[in-house]
Design a binder for these strands. Structure first.
Length: 885
RNA sequence: GAAUCGCUAGCUCAGUUGGCCAGAGCGCCUCGUUUACACCGAGGAGGUCGGGGGUUCGAGCCCCUCGCGAUUCACCA
């Protein structure tokens, strides 16, 4: 045998992937019921982290499983231009060259970024291949592909026509470093130490000197104050409402207004209102028709303020304003204050709330339709509570700002009349900066779409659903598998936009995986230096091992640690499969050798195999199809362990069906692992050393069942053992196994006997063991098998046996001398105690009238049986003990 | 401040509508050179399921409460 003793993943994986890809096995078959998954597109020029490896594992298991069970399967990959993410990287590179975005036009920047991305593209796809992703590369879509833009524009137009798009001045979250606005969801709040400053505003009019005191964390914004607000029911200020105060420093008169948004009894009860720089103030300003004075510009500098403050950064202005207030005597108490401050999630700059003219999506109708669909159960969520979370989210969702001030993205197809700022028209001719329509001149909007606006349409875009394309049958998708961290920004938007554009939910089910933390359950981050690169793990342990390791220590939507031990267990499992195959190979070689004298497998190295397969050379003499179908007429030639292993494979198949349907990947992987290892390898293969009629069939079945979980090693074995050009990826699972349950049970009895013998033998000093039995046809019929499995020196029947009685129904004794027997007594006593305890428990349960009355009948019956068996066991153990004395 | 999730063996985690003396991987202990595999085989130790209370014939699972951790949301001047 020339194959290595251990499976070295790195020697095979790349070649195997190439085989798959060349064979077009990833393409939809066109046969059977459609099953589709749309891949959450990874960043086109980024590299994958271990979280990606988890999604690949999960989506690939689903895809391969359904492919091998007769479904017409499409896993559609994508690449994301990742608007802001990529822009940040690009701009950093630009700055490193001493250049700035302001040195170029928008079109130039777009082209430069395009080239930048093109240069560093492809790494992500390579990594997906290394992870074994069986996705249909031919249907890959890049988020800036013309067809994407086309559909996004059509949707924008439709929404425009339906009145769901509006342009308006609103407070937006603005990063003065990146010069773009953000959605609410993109802002991170961090706790900061600051001050709470009290400012006194002189009430205008009366000769009486009267002040209203307000508190603020940002005194510099007072320069843009337009009102003082109090609660309408606040007795303290009731008579002041409608009057004015003098704005310190600036000297202008601003009104005192009443508004419910002011919390009664909080602080001084009065609030300064700066409509241009605070979301709540903006709302209050809208309600009261207050003017909007912007005092901070998009660079974060002061504007529209008295000369001495002009151009100062907000922070500096704060100091200076406080200083001036103090001089004027308008400054009240100053206290230390801890509060949450919004930051840019990328650069950490403080987010400035600014009033900007932007495009908004009116979400109310979209959100209520989405909510209705969820309430009607049109989408199944795993875990289910995430669906409830989305329902709540749809309730509180606010209008969605889709304008971004970065060049890297899909340009917004809207043009503004140069002579009339309120005249906006839709036009997709975004290559031109100016267009003329009906004799009027229009200028293109400089902004691009929020990437979630386009990716929110992903499921129907990539399936060409609207264009009646080839993949149309794959919409709605069978399942959306993605991270729980993008439930709101992505999943929620896909549901809203999918329903709006296609009238259908975009997917039937949503499975959310959790974050992969490091092995100490700490969140991975570059700054902590604890990031695990999946490709390193693949290089060390193999892609299958990583996949098994990731999937097995994990449940849905749960942030959990990465467990290297589970990866090692996965690696060991692959090696187990490998060695089972080596054994089968050897057995079959012997057979074939006897018949033909030829052995062809095993010795070609894998590289040769590749050529072999590519040439479709069918001259090989290895016939693995033998035993594929076990017909009833074959039963006579099958052994008890053949029947037994077939029953185990049937059970495993059924279990995997059930578990995968419920997205219980950890349990599925574990069930596979233990059936293959603890049943097939430890018992069947051992027994099969006596010969078996289904050896190859069992191996093939195991390979098929394991394939979705460990695709590389199973395919490597398959192609190595097959001289035709068949690939495992394209095989169908065996669904019905023909076995005799009674014979299967016979082996189960033998297995129990063997276990009990080993158990007892363990308590002896070792050495050669002799088993004596009485009146058992089963043992008599399988003497050799039992001898080998239990590692016995002798096995024979006897009329009046003696020695150590083996626990169980079969009457058998291990031969032992007096010394050994004495050592064994203690163990028997312990066992009796244990059984006594159990019996006592069971009796207690049965003596409770309410248990017998209320518990399901089968349970009561089971308890009775168990009690009877336990009592029998106690009796036989006691007899055994007495027999020893 | 609110919501959600979690707290099970030394470590990382399973445990589906409450029902076999609570499971896995790795680690640990004992033994083993049976020619598929030491990335192995056989046997074994180890848990009052975060604390307390309740419902039930029966609770790791349901309810209440407290503690600890994570995540998300909202931000009050």
């Amino acid at each position: 045998m020339k194959l290595n003793k251990t499976y070295e993943a790195k020697n095979f994986e790349a070649d195997i992937y190439q085989l798959w890809e060349k064979s077009e096995a990833f393409r939809p078959s066109g046969q059977g019921q459609p099953y589709s998954i749309v891949m959450p597109p990874p960043n086109a020029n980024g590299s994958l982290h271990v979280g990606h490896a988890l999604f690949v594992a999960v989506e690939d298991i689903l895809t391969r499983y359904h492919r091998m069970n007769g479904r017409d399967t499409a896993w559609i990959p994508g690449a994301d231009h990742a608007g802001f993410e990529t822009w940040v990287v690009f701009e950093r590179a630009l700055e490193a060259e001493g250049k700035s975005r302001f040195d170029y036009s928008r079109d130039e920047l777009y082209e430069m970024t395009w080239n930048f991305v093109a240069d560093s593209r492809g790494g992500m796809e390579k990594q997906l291949r290394a992870l074994g992703a069986s996705c249909d590369w031919k249907s890959l879509v890049f988020t800036l592909d013309p067809k994407v833009v086309e559909i996004v524009y059509a949707t924008f137009k439709k929404m425009w026509d339906d009145g769901l798009i509006y342009r308006g001045e609103r407070i937006v979250n603005y990063c003065t470093h990146h010069h773009t606005s953000f959605a609410d969801i993109e802002v991170v709040f961090r706790e900061e130490q600051g001050h709470l400053w009290e400012i006194k505003y002189l009430v205008d009019g009366d000769s009486l000197v009267e002040y209203i005191t307000v508190a603020t964390t940002r005194p510099e914004t007072m320069l843009g104050d337009e009102a003082i607000a109090v609660h309408p029911d606040d007795e303290k200020y009731k008579n002041l409402v409608g009057r004015s105060v003098i704005l310190p420093i600036v000297g202008k008169k601003i009104p005192i207004i009443a508004d419910d948004a002011v919390e009664l009894g909080f602080g001084t009860g009065a609030v300064k209102i700066t409509p241009a720089h605070d979301p709540l103030d903006f709302q209050i300003g809208q309600r009261h028709g207050l003017p909007i004075t912007k005092v901070i510009d998009e660079d974060g500098r002061m504007t529209n303020v008295p000369e001495e403050f002009m151009g100062l950064e907000a922070g500096e202005a704060c100091q200076k304003v406080v200083e001036r207030l103090r001089q004027e005597g308008s400054l009240g108490k100053v206290e230390k204050f801890t509060h949450q401050v919004p930051h840019c999630y990328k650069c950490g700059s403080v987010i400035q709330p600014l009033v900007k003219d932007q495009w908004f999506v009116a979400v109310e109708k979209l959100a209520s339709n989405a909510k209705k669909a969820l309430q009607q159960g049109k989408i199944r969520f795993v875990p289910a509570h995430k669906g409830d979370e989305l329902i709540r989210y749809f309730d509180e969702l606010r209008d969605w700002n889709i304008s971004r001030q970065i060049p890297w993205g899909i340009p917004i197809p809207a043009f503004q009349n140069v002579d009339n700022p309120d005249d906006w028209i839709f036009n997709a001719d975004v290559d031109k900066e100016y267009i003329e329509v009906d004799g009027r001149r229009y200028r293109r909007d400089d902004d691009t779409f929020d990437t979630w606006f386009s990716s929110g349409q992903w499921p129907f875009i990539v399936t060409d659903y609207l264009a009646d394309g080839e993949l149309k049958r794959f919409y709605p998708n069978a399942v959306m598998e993605t991270g729980m961290d993008i439930l709101r920004p992505w999943v929620a938007r896909m549901i809203m936009l999918g329903l709006y554009v296609t009238g259908e939910v975009p997917f039937r089910e949503v499975y959310l995986h959790g974050i992969v933390n490091d092995e100490h359950n700490q969140k991975m981050s570059k700054s902590k230096g604890n990031v695990i690169d999946p490709i390193d793990t693949v290089a060390e342990y193999g892609s299958d091992a990583l996949r098994l390791g990731l999937v097995s220590a994990r449940s849905a939507a749960q942030a959990q640690a990465f467990s290297p031990d589970k990866v090692i267990a996965g690696r060991n499992f692959c090696n187990k499969l490998w060695n089972m195959a080596r054994f089968v190979e050897g057995q079959v070689a012997n057979e074939t050798n006897k018949q033909t004298g030829a052995v062809t497998f095993g010795d070609p190295l894998f590289a040769q195999k590749l050529t072999f397969v590519a040439d479709s050379d069918k001259s090989g003499s290895f016939e693995t199809d033998k035993g594929r179908k076990v017909s009833k007429s074959d039963h006579s030639s099958l052994t008890v362990y053949d029947h037994w292993v077939l029953s185990k494979l049937q059970h495993l198949t059924n279990e995997l069906d059930k578990l995968i349907k419920d997205y219980r990947f950890a349990e599925a992987a574990e069930t596979l692992y233990h059936t293959v290892w603890d049943e097939v390898a430890d018992w069947y293969i051992e027994a099969a050393k006596q010969g078996s009629g289904v050896l190859e069939f069992v191996l093939e079945t195991v390979l098929k069942l394991a394939h979705p979980f460990a695709p590389f090693v199973t395919e490597t074995i398959w192609t190595t053992l097959h001289d035709d050009d068949s690939l495992l990826i394209g095989q169908q699972w065996n669904r019905e196994f023909d076995f005799n349950p009674k014979l299967a049970r016979d082996f189960e009895k033998i297995k129990q006997l063997v276990t009990a013998v080993r158990n007892t033998a363990e308590n002896l000093d070792g050495g050669e063991q002799t088993l004596i039995y009485h009146d058992s046809k089963l043992v008599a019929d399988h003497e050799n098998l039992i001898k080998n499995l239990a590692n016995l020196e002798n096995l024979f029947p006897m009329e009046n046996p003696s020695g150590l009685r083996i626990a169980g129904h079969i009457q058998a004794w291990l031969a032992a001398d007096k010394a050994k027997i004495a050592a064994y007594k203690a163990k028997i006593s312990a066992k009796i105690d244990e059984a006594d305890n159990l019996a006592e428990n069971l009796e207690k349960r049965l003596s409770s009238a309410s248990y017998v009355k209320n518990a399901p009948k089968h349970l009561v019956k089971e308890t009775r049986t168990q009690l009877a068996e336990t009592e029998k066991l106690i009796k036989s153990l006691t007899e055994e003990l007495e027999g020893l004395e």
